[in-house]
């Protein structure tokens, strides 16, 4: 049940970022959170660059989920 709760939270948070429902998050989407979350534009850019594992400029649910799982359970748990 922990896993399903984390999966659900992952999807919820992904949808907060991917407000247009494209299925991926762009840098512009992340910068849009500048007013909603207590993080600076630079910190949001840092988050995007860290999560965007392949560096192609499109943050997929898989990359986002991998980052969130690492935050929740530590490295190596995907």
């Amino acid at each position: 049940s922990d896993c399903s709760a984390v999966l659900e939270k992952t999807r919820e948070f992904f949808q907060i970022c991917d407000i247009e429902g494209k299925g991926f998050i762009t840098r512009r989407d992340m910068q849009r959170l500048n007013g909603e979350l207590p993080l600076s534009a630079e910190e949001l850019e840092n988050v995007f660059a860290t999560l965007d594992a392949d560096g192609n400029g499109y943050l997929t649910l898989e990359e986002f989920s991998s980052g969130f799982s690492e935050f929740m359970f530590g490295p190596g748990v995907v």
Binding site: L39, E43, M72
Partner: peptide, 29 residues
């Protein structure tokens, strides 16, 4: 090691990001 510092800084920002999302959803800081 600058790489270690960079990685630690990234982890900190990621933690801030996800904690902010958690607070936003639950309304509890």
């Amino acid at each position: 090691d600058p790489n270690m510092k960079g990685a630690a800084a990234n982890e900190g920002v990621l933690a801030n990001f996800f904690n902010s999302l958690l607070s936003k959803k639950t309304g509890v800081p």
